[in-house]
């Protein structure tokens, strides 16, 4: 279903053989959706634990440094899975989703989440190995963690609404 007049490049993505294959396959589409959820758990579930640690909500006895070193690679794998599956699902429906406002807001929130992570990791996060025990997590790190949680929750919620509007 193509709604309204979409730009040529969107139509080209929509008619791309892989998009057509995903769209018309009864198996490929739900398999990609399943992988999208696995990736989402790896990415958001793990990031949420880390963010809540920075906020001092859970695992307070655990120094954040080793936790971050362990969990961040997992979340990057999660991002790779969620991004690849999401890109294919989006390409397959690009013409019908082009005007979807929830998708647009989701992509903005996703960009905000990634920008927030980039800023965090190139600034105060560099001293993560010093935190824990007697050294509290700095407030700026907690602020980054709080923003991260809000952005990812926003991505999840708007993502769910895309299917309905």
């Amino acid at each position: 279903m193509i709604i309204g007049d979409v730009p040529d490049w969107v139509r080209a993505v929509h008619e791309w053989p892989l998009s057509v294959a995903v769209r018309e396959s009864e198996l490929l589409f739900p398999i990609l959706q399943t992988f999208h959820i696995f990736g989402l758990v790896l990415l958001v579930g793990v990031i949420a634990i880390l963010d809540l640690r920075f906020l001092g909500v859970l695992l307070r006895a655990q120094a954040p440094g080793p936790l971050a070193r362990w969990l961040l690679p997992i979340s990057r794998w999660g991002f790779a899975v969620v991004f690849a599956s999401g890109a294919l699902l989006l390409a397959a429906q690009s013409a019908s989703l082009y005007f979807n406002e929830f998708l647009r807001v989701k992509l903005l929130l996703l960009a905000a989440a990634l920008m927030n992570a980039l800023l965090f990791h190139t600034s105060v996060f560099r001293r993560v190995h010093e935190w824990g025990g007697a050294v509290p997590v700095p407030r700026s790190a907690a602020a980054f963690a709080g923003a991260s949680l809000l952005f990812w929750v926003g991505v999840l919620v708007t993502g769910r609404y895309i299917a309905y509007f």
């Binding site: 959820i37 989402l40 758990v41 790896l42 958001v44 579930g45 634990i49 997992i74 999840l156 769910r160």
Partner: peptide, 17 residues
């Protein structure tokens, strides 16, 4: 549904770890 997925994501994180 969004709330359900949020809880599952967090639950999945706990279970994975």
């Amino acid at each position: 549904e969004s709330l359900h997925i949020m809880f599952i994501a967090f639950l999945g994180g706990c279970v994975l770890v």
